[in-house]
């Protein structure tokens, strides 16, 4: 028996004889490091992504355009006197960069002013859907059981409505298409997606040990929900919201194009595309320029969403 064990004492003495392990870095006095949270990590990561830099520059320009269109053009397209029917469908020139539309109005000025409605619709609808869908998803996911079942079934009813058809229907009920009704129609149809994502994230976060631990240390429901679960579940909602923003902008254009969204004389890219369509073969500019702005804007928000998703997901790093 004793002959089978010589190896053991040898390793044991080796372990004892070896020098004590060096002090862990955390015990070093004066150890100060900037705290690295999920958000500051993400921000650090984002600043180094070309995708993020490009999209945020584009978005910044668009937002300035929406807030102060007069910085970009001296013509006010809301003033009908700037349009001259005699110059209708004039090709681009030095004075009118994008040419003139069917009514002889400056396409460049209209495109710049059209940014406002697109951006307002995009941002407002995104915030509303994120808040409504997020809050309901948080409640459903946290409460579980019957509450969750009822809320989820109701959400599925909304899910079943095809989006453009649903929006057409809602706008038909209101009879007037304006910024408010368009935003309402889009929000009504879009919140279920946010709801589902939030609910799923909350259910995942709810079963995490730190939530159970917080409960064991006396945190109440409200505190658990908003302090412990929400910050850990909100990431996917933010990512989807960023991507949705672009979708809302194009959906607004689609509804306006179909004639149920924003109406003339309000200017939006969808309205411009719609107005230019009948004479597209004669003058492509009035349709292509706002369409290009629309595409670039949607692209910018989707790129931003991608960059944010990558930055917030540690597994993709």
């Amino acid at each position: 028996m004793s002959e089978t064990t010589p190896a053991m004492p040898v390793t044991a003495t080796a372990a004892v004889g070896s020098p004590p392990p060096p002090l862990a870095p955390e015990t070093k006095p004066g150890y100060v490091e900037k705290p690295a949270s999920l958000w500051s990590d993400a921000w650090y990561d984002l600043r180094r992504r070309p995708l993020f830099i490009m999209s945020s520059i584009l978005i910044a320009v668009l937002v300035v355009m929406a807030l102060f269109p007069s910085l970009f053009t001296s013509i006010n397209p809301m003033d009908a006197t700037t349009c001259q029917l005699s110059t209708a469908r004039q090709p681009p020139s030095a004075a009118h960069w994008f040419g003139k539309d069917n009514l002889g109005c400056d396409v460049y000025a209209r495109t710049i002013y059209g940014a406002r409605i697109s951006i307002i619709v995009g941002i407002t609808t995104t915030i509303v859907t994120a808040m409504v869908g997020g809050l309901l998803g948080l409640i459903a996911g946290f409460a579980g059981g019957a509450t969750d079942s009822v809320m989820s079934r109701v959400t599925e009813i909304f899910f079943a409505i095809p989006s453009i058809l649903g929006a057409l229907l809602i706008l038909a009920v209101f009879r007037t298409g304006n910024v408010w009704t368009v935003m309402l129609a889009l929000a009504v149809l879009a919140w279920p997606m946010t709801f589902r994502i939030m609910r799923a994230a909350v259910i995942t976060a709810k079963s995490q040990d730190y939530v159970v631990a917080a409960r064991a240390l006396g945190a109440g429901s409200g505190r658990l929900m908003f302090r412990h679960i929400l910050p850990n579940a909100v990431t996917p909602v933010i990512v989807v919201a960023t991507i949705n923003l672009g979708m809302f902008i194009s959906a607004e254009a689609a509804l306006s194009f179909l004639g149920v969204g924003i109406q003339s004389p309000d200017i939006s890219w969808g309205v411009m595309i719609s107005d230019a369509r009948p004479r597209f073969l004669e003058a492509a500019g009035p349709l292509l320029f706002p369409a290009a702005f629309l595409s670039v804007t949607v692209l910018a928000f989707i790129m931003l969403g991608d960059a944010v998703r990558d930055a917030l997901d540690p597994k993709l790093r």
């Binding site: 730190y210 631990a213 917080a214 064991a216 240390l217 006396g218 109440g220």
Partner: peptide, 25 residues
């Protein structure tokens, strides 16, 4: 019950990494 929980009877969990909230100091 929640008056007792955490204040008069407290609990320590097995895996402290998952029992601490990752997003707060």
């Amino acid at each position: 019950r929640s008056q007792i929980r955490g204040q008069r009877i407290a609990m320590i969990f097995q895996d402290a990494l998952s029992a601490l909230n990752p997003v707060f100091t």
